[in-house]
Nucleic acid binder design. Structure first.
Lengths: 356, 356
DNA sequence: TTGAAAGCGCTAACAC
DNA sequence: GTGTTAGCGCTTTCAA
């Protein structure tokens, strides 16, 4: 007569006519040579009959499971974040850490996940701006975002990469560009905008901009008036021969708009993107873009986090240090290089875009 | 003098000069009105000073956390699986279940994850062939795979969709096709191959095939000799005017090969894919493909799983049923429709491919 | 308003 | 070989 509660090892023991610790031995596989064959079989049978499964919580409480770090990303369908996750997971496993994934945009929800699981540390990727260190007392490293406080962070060195993009176009002979920005308010996109602006200014290049949500259709819609000469900014509309996009997805939208308007790429218009997704290689011509090594971002962040945890262990083991010594370089901000990949979508400017 | 072990609520109690249960009250937020302000502050201060964090395992052992289901996918970077995960997660949350992700290809590793966490059920997507029900006693539903035993499964109704593809090409006037298969041995790809073969046979269409790993470069390499007329099969090489691909990624490879050979799409060659990834919309011309609604797959599977769990609960609560009643429709295999999306990459055949 | 005490289900010494 | 026992860190009556 099973009750509403799942069976415990006691129940199994009773049914098998053995003691509870024998059940424990059998289920841990530590029964080799210590528990008789008959007994073992009896235990297993009783367990099956009852549908018994060892309670992992109780086991972990007793024995202490592997340490866990939670990885938070805003969107796992986006392959970039999936790569970050993969990289982080790899690094964690190497060090014997388990990882749990939390797909959340806001800190609140991440904090809830942290409380719910037995989490030892948090790796938070591309969180929305304005996040404080979520919970104190939980070591954390943020990825691709403004480090909230004295916390560690790993980010791309994105500004030089976008400077390279502009420079590349400039050297090809482009003298005016349009910048299609992603309508996302995170640090990385702000940095991209600033870098493009600065690079254009430094080279005396004409510059207009538009912005769009991070999907192809929105980008297409935003690009259409721009390419058709409807740009409204301080610069004369139409006075650009290249579009610099904040993301490859936006670049695809520009391809579509250009196609709709009968503008050839790269003959009539050069286009660049950021974040070397498969998209960049799939389109024709292949897209000149900036490679953002997501896996490496995840790996590097996880390694920092693990190092921090292990330092904390040592500290405790070795007795207390003076306060000033704590946190050594925990607040440091590592920058990962982002590399420009030149492909077929950029070329010397042909005829400037006709105003329509 | 902190030891190597993390502080417990007892430590906090001692430092704050209160009892352990008071600490517990404060940390559960159940202190409102029951614990004095001064006491509360003292507890919080002591906790901060010690770096105390409640032990989630102990808490769950006592109070029983939300139930968890583990979702296993072979590759989270593949957006299809990411969508499956997302759909499953959504459905789980609606019912108050937590989800944990396990990225593994083989059953062994999944089983390890199941044992490590307190998992109540498993949703396994696209596992390699030959998997038995991983652990008995853990309810499981498999997605997009041969149901191992009497277990539930949810899969796409892929055969009719590929029949539609062939039929579509046939109606356009194509009389011979090449089938570019994915070099992956799972049930879904076997079904695709069989469906294409059968559909061609039924219509008396010429058919050759090749196979390739699931990436663009491999597909391109595989498509090149095929398009150049080097196909080796029972059918005369070159006697096709369309390529049916097992996956959109493969189709992109075919685009590249066609481009390299100066073959226009769809003028000189029609191409189709499967699995409506962003890729299909990004390429030019847009790819005729079969939409595989991954989110729906995940949602449906999770709903089945949750229903099964809740049925089990009821059963236990209401006393034991006779054995024959168990499992009602647990072994049923649901099929989700997969829809053909016709886009620009298919058209009536122009000149047949020249043999080179 | 706070404290004492009894477990949650399991593991790991240690006894028999 | 198998059983006894004492906790793991927390929640939760029940007293004070």
């Amino acid at each position: 007569m099973p009750t509403g509660k799942p069976p415990t090892s006691h129940d199994v023991a009773r049914l098998a006519g053995v003691s509870q610790s024998t059940v424990s031995l059998v289920f841990r596989g530590a029964a080799g040579g210590r528990v008789g064959q008959r007994t073992q079989r009896a235990v297993l049978d009783a367990a099956r009959q009852l549908g018994f499964r060892p309670n992992a919580d109780a086991r972990r409480l007793r024995v202490g499971g592997p340490r866990m770090v939670l990885i938070a990303v805003p969107d796992i369908v986006n392959p970039f974040f999936a790569r970050v996750f993969t990289g982080a997971r790899t690094a964690a496993r190497e060090r014997g850490f388990q990882v749990v994934l939390s797909v959340q945009r806001d800190l609140e929800s991440v904090a809830a996940d942290v409380a719910g699981q037995q989490v030892d540390a948090v790796l938070a990727c591309s969180l929305d701006d304005g996040g404080r260190p979520l919970d104190d007392a939980v070591p954390a490293v943020v990825l691709d975002a403004e480090p909230p406080e004295g916390q560690g962070s790993v980010r791309f060195d994105i500004a030089p990469a976008l400077t390279d993009v502009v420079d590349h176009l400039h050297r090809l002979g482009h003298r005016g560009i349009a910048h299609l920005r992603a309508d996302v308010r995170t640090a990385t996109f702000r940095e991209r905008a600033e870098a493009v602006d600065a690079a254009c200014a430094a080279r005396g290049m004409n510059r207009v901009h538009a912005s769009s949500a991070l999907d192809v259709d929105a980008a297409r819609a935003a690009a259409l008036p721009l390419l058709a000469g409807g740009g409204s900014g301080p610069c004369a509309p139409g006075a650009f021969t290249a579009v610099v996009c904040d993301d490859d997805v936006l670049a695809v939208g520009v391809y579509k708009a250009a196609q709709a308007l009968g503008i050839a790429i790269p003959g009539g218009l050069s286009v660049t993107g950021v974040d070397d997704v498969d998209l960049a290689m799939a389109v024709t011509p292949e897209l000149t873009t900036v490679d953002l090594p997501g896996e490496e971002l995840g790996e590097t962040g996880m390694r920092r986090l693990v190092a921090e945890l292990e330092r904390a262990d040592d500290e405790q083991a070795g007795g207390e240090r003076v306060g000033a010594d704590r946190g050594s370089d925990a607040g440091a901000c590592v920058r990962l290089p982002a590399q420009l990949l030149i492909r077929g979508s950029t070329a010397r400017p042909g005829t400037p875009l006709p105003l329509r």
